[in-house]
């Protein structure tokens, strides 16, 4: 049985690729949950009830005029988001997000009215 589980995990880890995406994740499980992180290969086992909510913001590596990467100047990608994740155990889930990336995010971050509109889009017109 141990060999079967180890083999399955190895296969799953091999198939899963690395993540170079912006990600918003919610997961809730009642039972047995085994997860493998693609980059680190870290394996996690949970038995019973487990819940997690997280975001992954990838790094952006700028390039010089010759197209060479400048890892010393790497920083998180430009991003503005408003999120509302409500979870009631395993029964109910609300998953609301407004996300803006890139050059548009830089402009909206300077626009109070735009930020208010984002908040209203997630929480409704009553949001302040």
């Amino acid at each position: 049985m141990k060999c079967l589980i180890a083999g399955l995990l190895a296969s799953v880890a091999a198939i899963a690729g690395g993540c170079n995406h912006l990600a918003y994740v919610h997961s809730a499980v009642v039972g047995v949950d085994v997860t493998v992180a693609p980059d680190s290969g870290t394996t996690r086992l949970s038995i019973g009830y487990d819940r997690e909510t997280f975001a992954i913001v990838p790094r952006y590596t700028p390039q010089d005029e010759n197209g060479n990467s400048l890892p010393a100047q790497a920083e998180a990608m430009s991003l503005v988001s408003v999120s509302n994740v409500d979870a009631l155990g395993i029964q109910e889930l609300i998953f609301n997000h407004v996300v803006v990336t890139g050059a548009a995010a830089k402009n909206i971050a300077k626009d109070p009215q735009g930020l208010k509109m984002m908040r209203e889009a997630v929480f409704g017109p009553a949001a302040r």
């Binding site: 995990l9 994740v25 919610h26 499980v29 047995v32 085994v34 997860t35 979870a87 889930l93 997000h97």
Partner: peptide
């Protein structure tokens, strides 16, 4: 894309990528 998983039971997942 976010990794591998084996689950047995009740589960609820939401992902935006």
């Amino acid at each position: 894309s976010l990794g591998g998983a084996i689950r047995l039971g009740l589960g609820k997942q939401a992902t935006l990528l």
